[in-house]
């Protein structure tokens, strides 16, 4: 299988078969990751740099483990503490790193489009680990793998994405991916957090969660991104929880076998009831974390194949 992309910048550029290829390869890594010896050498000799211009523990750890299990030399750069503070521009930082000949660059940045910009300036493969409110492709892929394993398919499902859609790159990438795979998507949240423009993408927009959750197969909750808010999107956390927090009563409106997802980190008692999040019969939140490592291994392997061919 040939993966015809130099970078993984967003789901927007991927075809159905690209997505399926990544997920199929990721399945093999799920198996590998469950063995006691979790080593492969497909990235051996390659250098992977994780550049996070925005705080991240989970995603950065996931990319780091993925790279290390594939034998890459992995380096983490906490960009918040680094040259940005000294006034260096993004492009200069990129050019500096480029001169060190990395092979894979994993980038997270607080501004939409920043990772695209950086990818234009470097010679290596770039993986977008989240740019502003734009895309977070590996998150959407790991969500897709989780759904496919739990539901046995990744098409013709009713999927609800709930909460702070406006500020969420996870929501955008998922909306694009799940749309490409021919699912019906509902977006649920107060209109301040789910603007009407999302209806233009073929999603159904609900501001009543009880109505929106009826008969869905998958309930995907989003983090209420408090740090992104200028203020005034919702009246209070408790009113938000009352109207849009997922609890057993609201979940009962979905299909009896509906699964509950959350990209983490969770605000228990704000967007999701703590007990429900821990319910192993409904919640696949821990599976999402596991699939994350596998999907990132798969994505990096596919990009690395191209690098080796080009070399």
């Amino acid at each position: 299988m040939r993966f015809a992309h130099r970078h993984l910048l967003g789901i927007e550029h991927l075809s159905q078969s690209d997505i399926t290829a990544i997920l199929d390869l990721a399945e093999t890594y799920v198996d590998l990751n469950r063995q006691s010896t979790k080593r492969s050498d497909v990235l051996s000799g390659l250098t992977q740099i994780n550049m996070f211009f925005e705080n991240s523990t989970r995603t950065q750890a996931s990319f780091e483990i993925a790279g290390k299990r594939l034998g890459a030399d992995v380096m983490n750069m906490a960009m918040q503490a680094s040259s940005i503070k000294k006034g260096e521009t993004l492009i200069d930082t990129a050019m500096t790193l480029n001169a060190m000949h990395p092979d894979l660059l994993v980038v997270r940045h607080p501004h939409s489009g920043a990772v695209d910009l950086l990818a234009q300036k470097v010679n290596c493969a770039v993986l977008n680990a989240g740019d502003g409110k734009h895309e977070h492709p590996t998150q959407a892929l790991l969500d897709a793998l989780t759904i496919r394993r739990a539901k046995g398919r990744l098409h013709r499902l009713n999927i609800a994405i709930c909460g702070d859609v406006a500020h969420s790159r996870v929501a955008r990438s998922n909306l694009i991916l799940l749309g490409k795979m021919e699912n019906r998507i509902r977006l649920i949240g107060p209109p301040t957090l789910v603007p009407g423009h999302f209806a233009d993408f073929g999603a159904e927009v609900y501001d009543d969660m009880n109505e929106g959750l009826k008969d869905v197969d998958v309930v995907m909750m989003l983090r209420l991104q408090k740090e992104r808010m200028d203020g005034g999107f919702i009246p209070s956390e408790r009113e938000y929880y009352h109207r849009y927090g997922l609890d057993a009563a609201k979940l009962a409106l979905a299909k009896p076998d509906a699964i509950v997802m959350h990209p983490g980190p969770m605000n228990r008692g704000v967007e999701i009831d703590g007990t429900l999040a821990d319910d192993i019969n409904r919640s696949v939140i821990q599976d999402q974390v596991e699939m994350g490592v596998a999907v990132r291994m798969a994505a990096m392997e596919l990009l690395a194949r191209n690098l080796r061919e080009a070399a």
Partner: peptide, 11 residues
């Protein structure tokens, strides 16, 4: 504001 800005995630 509109479909394009939403897709690109721009304020």
């Amino acid at each position: 504001s509109g479909k394009f800005a939403t897709l690109r995630g721009l304020p």
